[in-house]
Every structure is written in C-alpha cells, then in structure tokens.
Amino acid sequence: MNSARISELLKIHPKTSSYWGLYAAPTQEGIKPDLGVAVAKKLAKRAVDRNRLKRMIRELIWAAQAGNLDKDVVVKLKKPIGRETRGRLRKKETELLRSQISGLI
C-alpha cells in the first residue's frame, strides 16, 4: 500500500479502542486489497516491540478475514506502550492489546 492510499484512509473515521485505531475502506477498482500497519517509534520505543506488534496485527487481521482481505485496512497505534514496564512490552500488556484489536475486527 502506498503512502497516498494510507493518508487517504487515515482521513476516514476509524473504529477505535483505547490503544488502536482501525481504518477500513472498500478497495479501489482493479487494485487488490491491502493491509497497512503504523506503530510509531514515539509510542513503542524498542524495535523488538514494534515488530512484535506488527506481526500480531497481521496475524489477527489475516485470521479474521481468512486470507481474503476484502477491504483496504490500516491499523494505527494511538497510545504509548510500556509506561509501567520501563518501556518494554510485557505479556500482560500484549494480551490487552491483542484483545482490543480483536474487538475492533
């Protein structure tokens, strides 16, 4: 998904939870649907945690849509993670983030 399409989707009113924003729109004619994930460095300091979150989101979206994306989807992290755990993503917080994103799908 190119940056112009991501910017276009981010202007749409999202489904939200306390940590996530899920932006979805029908695909454009003749273009296959795609998935975009935005986890900002300011919100998840460690690269390990950003990559783990991105993998988790991809896994949940693909499982929910059974491999067939019927919409263009962008998932964006809204709040910083790891405030109580010295900047590290822990198992308890991972489960909270996973449940919130599952609730949006």
Rank of each mutant, 00 (worst) to 15 (best):
N2Q: 04
N2A: 11
A4W: 10
R5L: 08
I6P: 01
S7F: 14
E8A: 10
K11P: 04
K11A: 15
K11N: 08
I12D: 05
K15C: 11
K15A: 15
T16S: 12
S17A: 14
Y19H: 15
Y19G: 08
W20V: 02
G21A: 05
L22H: 06
Y23R: 09
A24V: 12
A25M: 05
P26E: 08
P26K: 00
P26F: 03
T27H: 10
G30T: 13
K32Q: 12
K32R: 15
P33K: 15
P33M: 12
D34A: 10
D34P: 01
V37C: 04
V37Y: 03
A38F: 15
A38D: 05
V39I: 12
K41Q: 12
K42P: 03
L43H: 08
A44Q: 02
A44Y: 01
A47G: 06
V48P: 05
D49F: 10
D49W: 09
R50M: 11
R50G: 10
N51Y: 07
N51S: 02
R52G: 02
L53S: 05
K54F: 05
R55V: 13
R55Q: 11
I57Y: 06
E59P: 07
I61Y: 05
A63W: 08
A63Y: 03
A63P: 01
A64K: 11
A66P: 01
L69Y: 01
D70Y: 10
K71N: 11
D72I: 00
V74W: 04
V74H: 08
L77F: 13
P80E: 00
P80H: 14
I81Y: 00
I81P: 00
G82T: 06
G82Y: 09
R83Q: 03
R88F: 09
L89I: 04
L89K: 03
R90A: 12
K91S: 08
K92S: 13
E93I: 09
E93H: 08
T94N: 00
L97N: 10
S99A: 13
S99F: 09
Q100I: 09
Q100N: 12
I101D: 00
S102D: 14
S102Y: 10
S102K: 15
G103E: 06
L104Y: 05
L104I: 14
L104S: 07
I105N: 09
